[in-house]
């Protein structure tokens, strides 16, 4: 009487593609370097395209596409549009895909052509360069997995939910949550400009664990008190300009948007 069986129809393995655009490929590398987990992943899904791990991509319909890197050429733009059309679920992985990364640091600052010219001079490119932007500047993104690189536990929590047909869980807490659980002394108490309270957690408070302030690389914690946090940092003797420059440094581009809006 107590025999339990979940009568599920045998479903084909979910079809997954992993793609890299402009970036260091560190997030794909992280997935490959998870040893046991990557083998499990290869067992439980049908990897159609993962150029870094296998050279025979099959470009067709996908259940889930994981996309790393920012879009910075016309060719990449066309490719991401195609991937979006083929994928039921599209996940932006890593900071470059999520918020543009360091290459998008000056997006919107002066004209792109001017900056381009200053750095490269007058050159002909194989494919037309674009101002580097995150994936969601071009296509709709279903889930974001920030990080530089992404965190393996978070990545596999997300991947396993997606491939088992469940909705991933969001983590709407600031870096400070994990920072305290790691028993770090709050750097703000020592008047160090830390962006932990403004920044989405999940990184395991990587920088404060080493006594370094959070630079906001995982993007905004929506609930952050942007206005007062800036005032607090100014009271430490930093100018507003210095603070904004610090945020820009590591893809805190989306944090800036909150600040421009006048905080919350």
């Amino acid at each position: 009487m107590t025999e339990i069986s979940n009568t599920k129809l045998a479903v084909a393995k979910p079809k997954v593609g992993i793609y890299g655009f402009t970036g260091c490929a560190g997030d794909q590398l992280l997935i490959i370097h998870t040893e046991d987990e990557i083998l499990n992943l290869f067992n439980s899904v049908d990897i159609r395209s993962f150029v870094m791990a296998s050279s025979n991509p099959i470009e067709e319909e996908l259940d889930v596409a994981f996309v790393e890197g920012s879009i910075s050429t016309e060719e990449e733009r066309e490719h991401i549009l195609k991937i979006r059309k083929r994928a039921k679920i599209l996940v932006a992985i890593g900071n470059c895909a999520v918020s543009g990364g360091p290459q998008a640091m000056f997006t919107g600052d002066n004209t792109f052509e001017k900056r381009m010219n200053k750095v490269y001079g007058n050159v002909n490119f194989l494919t037309a360069p674009l101002e580097a932007k995150p994936i969601d500047a071009f296509v709709e993104v279903d889930y974001y997995l920030p990080g530089c690189p992404i965190s393996a536990p978070q990545a596999f929590a997300l991947i396993s939910r997606l491939i088992h047909g469940a909705i991933p869980e969001s983590y709407p807490h600031p870096v400070c949550h994990e920072c305290k659980l790691n028993e770090n002394r709050c750097l703000l108490l020592d008047k160090i400009a830390c962006f932990g309270p403004l920044t989405m957690g999940g990184c395991g408070s990587a920088c404060p664990n080493h006594g370094l302030p959070c630079v906001g690389c995982w993007g905004p914690n929506d609930d952050g008190n942007f206005e007062h946090h800036l005032e607090l940092l100014e009271s430490f003797g930093k100018t507003r300009e210095e603070i904004l420059r610090l945020i820009r440094g590591y893809g805190g581009h989306k944090i800036l948007k909150y600040i421009e809006k006048g905080g919350k």
């Binding site: 979940n6 009568t7 047909g165 469940a166 909705i167």
Partner: peptide, 13 residues
Amino acid sequence: KLTESLFQKRDND
């Protein structure tokens, strides 16, 4: 999240 998964369940699950 939970109700979405519950809606995927069938009788006898």
